[in-house]
Design a protein around this nucleic acid. Structure first.
Length: 559
RNA sequence: CGGGGCGUGGCGCAGCCUGGUAGCGCGCGGCCUUUGGGUGGCCGAGGUCCCCGGUUCGAAUCCGGGCGCCCCGACCA
């Protein structure tokens, strides 16, 4: 029963003032969601229908590759999380039960499932195994944002694979990758798969699935045949112009000039002719200097990966004590290890002199200072990708990821099996996540126009919005009633706007909600014996003879 | 965690600076009107002005504290 007059579908003329992202505004206005608190959202009936469309696709495609659905609790004893060392994560919601026992609200389910597998799986004969569930996740995000794009509670499809070795994991990973491609294709999204940071998890591989859109939180470096999260992207830099080389570095006075722009302006050279020296403290190693070209930005993820250790920017006192005055630090004569970004190539750079109000020019790496070379800069638009293409950078929403976990969880939780030789080995795991809410929001971000949502058919809450322009009791209403009954009999998902409202309101609401096909039954059309069908995407119109309308609508939906 | 902004009927906002009857538009209810793009009119309902404390004869308004929400950055297995 989907009569709009009886459906809880509250639409709004204006978006909430504090909404910024397009999907946030439209989901609220179209009556899909309402806010409960920061990062906490209720799905109203129409929004929930779309979420369930995504979930149905996820279930079908997981089952197709032999991944079995189950369900694990959100509330869990803290002990499991202590064993994997994740109890200390700030985002993890912690609480106590009535007896004071420490509990957590799960932010993901590696611990729980690995625990089960550790108790049930004994032999290589029990492997491989792939399991998933659709379950609520709780994360105490420091900053929820943009409607349902980043929330503190959300549903995730999380799947896990259990294999006896890396080769098995590679097969499971590949299977999941194939399922993911089918899933995202079926959602109608524009998407791509990018290389991603394996982070501190230390896994052996990871990919993210990205849906490009303005509200995206991630930046993706794209070139034909190349896609990578900017966090890990590498590329050839654009060349930079350097001044003439000198036999030996020459000190220049730069009183009070501490920024790249100030120094390059004062010396009449481009920012790319400067060396930006960043003092950082590496965990367990102490103060070092990291150099990037003046027109480049340090990429913290790449640096962390290149160093194989965590680091933090050095404080002013540490810099003064170990190097020189803040703002005038440089590699020449530095008493700490120097890491030079690979993009610094040439023989005549400007760098800090490690003295107040002074820089050096004509600095030549290798001659004037020793270094270790790393690739730690953030790629820029126009850089050349490894395969030769020119890089563009665009924002995108992460809608899914796949991750080779290895034995990160199986070892601490004792998930092992016996191989053919009777040797106990840790199970090799992978994890595979998809957020249905982000898929819905991304679809809205990508498809919407100035009048509202434009759903891909696979995610639309209803396939057809049938609009009767007549009011209850008027003769034209009967034709709409009959078409509604017929479409329902044909199994079509139809939302019937049978409200006693003006035509403007009904037509505007239909465009806001954005179902793929709008059928208008009104006096004007009926006088010619037709109803009017309009595709939301593209606006293509067709007049359907009243007596064949049901059949024609069905045909339009399948064709 | 750093920076900024905002809390006043359901939604969007004004009023606050300069203390004195709480307002506007939309929405909502009734009647009439209109009937292919949020029609027009009349009548009406609806507000602890985020909370606590202080100043004052009197606080939405001034002061102090707290809470909530949003945005930017940091963070985001």
């Amino acid at each position: 029963m989907s009569r709009l007059s009886q459906t809880f579908l509250p639409t709004l003329k204006d978006a909430p003032a504090d909404a910024e992202a397009l999907s946030h505004k439209l989901m609220v206005r179209a009556g899909l969601i309402r806010q409960v608190g920061a990062g906490l959202w209720t799905y109203l009936p129409a929004g929930w229908r779309s979420i369930r469309k995504v979930e149905a696709i996820l279930r079908e495609e997981m089952e197709r590759i032999g991944c079995q659905e189950m369900l694990m609790p959100v509330l869990q004893p803290a002990e499991l999380w202590e064993r994997t060392g994740r109890y200390g994560i700030d985002e993890l919601m912690k609480l106590e039960d009535r007896r004071g026992a420490p509990m957590v609200l799960a932010m993901t389910h590696e611990e729980c499932l690995t625990y089960h597998v550790s108790r049930e799986v004994r032999s290589y004969r029990d492997l491989p195994l792939m399991l998933f569930h659709l379950q609520t996740k709780e994360r105490d995000e420091p900053r929820p944002r943009a409607g349902v794009l980043r929330t503190r509670e959300f549903t995730m499809k999380d799947a896990y694979s259990f294999d006896r070795d890396e080769e098995g994991l590679a097969r499971s990973y590949e299977l999941q990758g194939e399922a993911y491609a089918r899933i995202f294709d079926r959602t109608g999204l524009r998407w791509y798969r990018v290389e991603s940071d394996v982070g501190m998890m230390g896994g052996s591989g990871a990919h993210e699935y990205m849906a490009p859109c303005a509200a995206g939180e991630n930046e993706v470096a794209l070139a034909p045949g190349y896609a990578a999260n900017v966090e890990v992207a590498s590329a050839e830099p654009q060349p930079t112009e350097l001044p003439a080389a000198l036999d030996t570095p020459e000190e220049v006075s730069t009183p009070g000039l501490t920024t790249v722009d100030e120094v390059s302006g004062a010396l009449g050279v481009g920012p790319g002719a400067l060396i930006k020296a960043m003092p950082v403290v590496i965990e367990g190693r102490g103060l070092v200097l990291v150099l990037v070209r003046g027109d480049h930005r340090l990429n913290e993820v790449k640096l962390r990966n290149a160093l194989g250790a965590d680091f933090r920017p050095a404080g002013a006192e540490e810099i003064e004590a170990g190097l020189g005055p803040v703002g005038f630090v440089g590699p020449v004569g530095a008493k700490v290890p120097v890491f030079k970004d690979a993009a610094i190539q040439g023989d005549s750079f400007v760098a800090g002199a490690n003295r107040p109000d002074a820089h050096l020019r004509g600095v030549r790496p290798g001659r004037d200072f020793e270094f270790e070379e790393l690739d730690v800069r953030t790629v820029e638009p126009g850089d050349i990708a490894p395969n030769g293409g020119s890089i563009a950078i665009e924002p995108a929403i992460e809608i899914g990821n796949i991750f080779k976990l290895g034995t990160r969880y199986s070892e601490p939780l004792g998930a092992t099996y016996l191989d053919e030789g009777g040797v106990e080995r840790p199970i090799v795991m992978g994890s595979y996540g998809i957020g249905p809410a982000r898929i819905v929001a991304a679809a809205i971000e990508q498809g919407a126009d100035e009048r509202g949502i434009v759903w891909p058919a696979s995610l639309a809450p209803w396939q057809v919005q049938l609009v009767s322009l007549a009011k209850a009791g008027e003769p034209e209403r009967e034709a709409a009633d009959r078409l509604y009954a017929e479409l329902r009999a044909r199994g079509t998902e139809v939302l019937y706007d049978d409200r006693d409202a003006g035509p403007g309101e009904k037509l505007t609401d239909a465009e806001l909600l954005g179902c793929p096909l709008r059928i208008v039954v009104g006096r004007r059309g009926l006088a010619e014996g037709v109803v009017e069908a309009t595709r939301r995407a593209g606006g293509e119109e067709a007049k359907l003879p009243v007596e064949e309308a049901g059949e024609r609508v069905t045909a339009m939906l399948s064709g």
